[in-house]
Amino acid sequence: NITNLCPFDEVFNATRFASVYAWNRKRISNCVADYSVLYNLAPFFTFKCYGVSPTKLNDLCFTNVYADSFVIRGDEVRQIAPGQTGNIADYNYKLPDDFTGCVIAWNSNKLDSKVSGNYNYLYRLFRKSNLKPFERDISTEIYQAGNKPCNGVAGFNCYFPLRSYSFRPTYGVGHQPYRVVVLSFELLHAPATVCGPKKST
């Protein structure tokens, strides 16, 4: 009989979030998941669920729940959905087409922007091929755009693959930082360890 609440607040209220290319994953298990708490945590810009209804979450049980978190800019949030393409979905964080879970995003301009520009958040701009779903690539190998090998040196047709967002508070919403948490629900042929409040007794 599990009584402890799932530590969603640790994920959502973390002081620092990860850069999207090096997104963070927390496995959540053996706890009571009260998803209604999430609705009250922040004024969400996005709370979209796929393959599951957000209002039914509190009635369900899962084997595992994974919470992935990272920062992107406002106009990239739409890429965090099944079947999307674009720089983020292709080279940084890719959801599977049959994704079961929820994408939660909110504006973090007050936390993640600086007047002089916050350069701490990076994204991958160049990659030889698209990522597979939930693949994480943290390599910093020089990207070869031409025929000549780069031998690890940046220059003509040889690019450092990561680029930094420079978040400034005066930017338009599309270029402001957004914190994203992706909850993916895993149903294996194994005992369910993460249940809503109704199912945990």
Rank of each mutant, 00 (worst) to 15 (best):
N1T: 05
I2R: 01
I2E: 08
I2W: 09
I2M: 01
T3E: 02
T3M: 08
T3N: 04
T3D: 02
T3P: 04
N4M: 06
N4T: 07
N4E: 11
L5Y: 04
L5M: 07
L5H: 06
L5W: 05
P7R: 00
P7G: 12
P7D: 07
D9I: 08
D9V: 09
D9P: 13
D9W: 09
D9H: 06
E10M: 14
E10K: 07
V11L: 10
V11I: 10
N13F: 10
N13L: 10
T15N: 12
T15A: 09
T15V: 07
T15R: 07
R16Q: 10
R16W: 12
R16H: 00
R16C: 05
R16Y: 06
R16G: 09
S19N: 14
Y21F: 14
A22M: 02
A22N: 02
W23F: 14
K26R: 06
K26Q: 07
K26I: 11
R27A: 06
R27D: 11
I28Y: 04
I28L: 03
S29K: 04
S29D: 07
S29G: 10
S29F: 09
N30A: 12
N30E: 14
V32C: 12
V32E: 13
V32K: 04
V32Q: 11
V32I: 01
A33L: 12
A33M: 03
A33Y: 06
A33P: 02
A33Q: 14
A33I: 06
D34L: 15
Y35F: 11
Y35M: 06
S36E: 07
S36H: 06
V37R: 02
V37Y: 02
V37E: 09
V37T: 00
Y39V: 05
Y39Q: 04
Y39K: 01
Y39H: 04
N40G: 10
N40A: 00
N40T: 01
L41E: 09
L41C: 03
L41K: 11
L41N: 11
L41G: 01
A42V: 06
A42F: 08
A42I: 11
A42Y: 09
A42Q: 06
A42L: 06
P43A: 07
P43T: 11
P43N: 13
F44Y: 06
F44W: 07
F44G: 08
F45N: 04
F45I: 05
T46S: 04
F47S: 12
F47C: 05
F47Q: 13
G51N: 14
V52L: 13
S53T: 02
S53P: 08
P54W: 04
P54E: 08
P54R: 00
T55F: 08
T55A: 00
K56M: 08
K56Q: 09
K56A: 12
K56L: 07
L57F: 12
N58K: 05
N58A: 05
N58Q: 06
D59S: 01
D59Q: 12
L60F: 06
L60M: 03
L60G: 11
F62G: 13
F62N: 10
T63S: 01
T63R: 11
T63A: 11
N64W: 03
Y66L: 05
Y66F: 08
Y66N: 10
A67I: 08
D75C: 10
E76H: 13
V77L: 09
R78K: 03
R78G: 00
R78H: 00
R78Y: 07
Q79E: 13
G83C: 12
Q84K: 08
Q84G: 04
Q84V: 05
Q84T: 11
T85S: 00
T85N: 14
T85I: 08
N87F: 03
N87P: 02
N87C: 04
N87H: 12
N87Q: 10
D90A: 09
D90M: 13
Y91L: 13
Y91H: 14
K94R: 10
D97Q: 10
D97A: 10
D97T: 02
D98A: 12
D98H: 12
T100R: 01
T100Q: 12
T100H: 05
V103I: 14
I104V: 09
I104W: 12
I104M: 12
A105Y: 01
N109Y: 15
N109D: 13
N109T: 15
N109C: 15
N109R: 13
N109K: 15
K110M: 14
K110H: 04
L111N: 14
L111E: 10
L111A: 08
L111C: 13
K114E: 15
K114I: 15
K114Q: 15
K114F: 15
V115P: 15
V115R: 15
S116M: 15
S116I: 15
G117D: 15
N118G: 15
N118S: 15
Y119I: 15
Y119G: 00
Y119A: 09
Y119R: 07
Y119C: 05
N120D: 11
N120S: 14
N120E: 07
L122S: 03
L122K: 00
L122Q: 01
L122Y: 02
Y123H: 04
Y123A: 15
L125I: 01
L125T: 02
F126Q: 04
F126V: 09
F126A: 00
K128E: 09
K128F: 14
S129G: 07
S129D: 02
S129V: 03
S129I: 11
S129Q: 01
S129T: 02
S129R: 06
N130Q: 05
N130D: 12
N130T: 08
N130L: 11
K132L: 10
K132G: 08
F134H: 11
F134G: 00
E135Q: 02
E135G: 14
I138M: 09
I138E: 08
I138N: 00
S139K: 14
T140I: 11
T140E: 02
E141G: 12
I142P: 13
Y143I: 08
Y143M: 14
Q144S: 12
Q144K: 11
Q144T: 13
A145C: 10
N147D: 08
N147S: 02
N147R: 02
N147C: 08
N147Q: 05
K148N: 06
K148C: 07
K148Q: 03
P149M: 13
P149V: 08
P149L: 06
P149S: 09
P149C: 14
N151M: 05
N151A: 13
N151V: 13
N151R: 08
N151K: 01
N151I: 14
N151S: 08
G152T: 11
V153W: 11
A154L: 00
A154H: 07
A154P: 00
A154R: 10
A154D: 07
A154V: 00
G155D: 05
G155N: 12
N157R: 12
F160Q: 00
R163T: 13
R163Y: 13
R163A: 07
S164N: 13
S164V: 15
S164M: 14
S164Y: 06
S166H: 04
S166Y: 14
S166C: 07
R168Q: 08
R168T: 09
R168K: 13
P169N: 15
P169A: 15
T170Q: 11
T170Y: 15
T170R: 15
V173R: 07
V173L: 06
V173C: 08
V173G: 12
G174H: 02
G174W: 02
G174F: 14
G174M: 02
G174A: 00
G174R: 08
H175Y: 00
P177A: 14
V180C: 14
S184M: 14
S184F: 11
E186W: 10
L187E: 09
L187C: 07
L188V: 01
H189K: 08
H189Q: 03
H189N: 05
H189T: 07
H189F: 13
A190M: 03
A190Q: 05
A190G: 13
A190H: 10
A190K: 12
A190C: 06
A190F: 12
A190E: 13
A190S: 00
A192E: 02
A192I: 10
A192V: 03
T193H: 06
T193M: 01
T193C: 07
T193L: 02
V194G: 06
V194F: 07
V194S: 04
G196T: 01
G196A: 09
G196S: 04
G196L: 12
G196D: 13
G196I: 07
P197D: 03
P197L: 02
P197H: 04
P197I: 02
K198N: 04
K198R: 05
K198P: 04
K199G: 05
S200L: 03
S200C: 03
S200E: 02
S200K: 08
S200Q: 01
T201N: 01
T201K: 00
T201L: 02
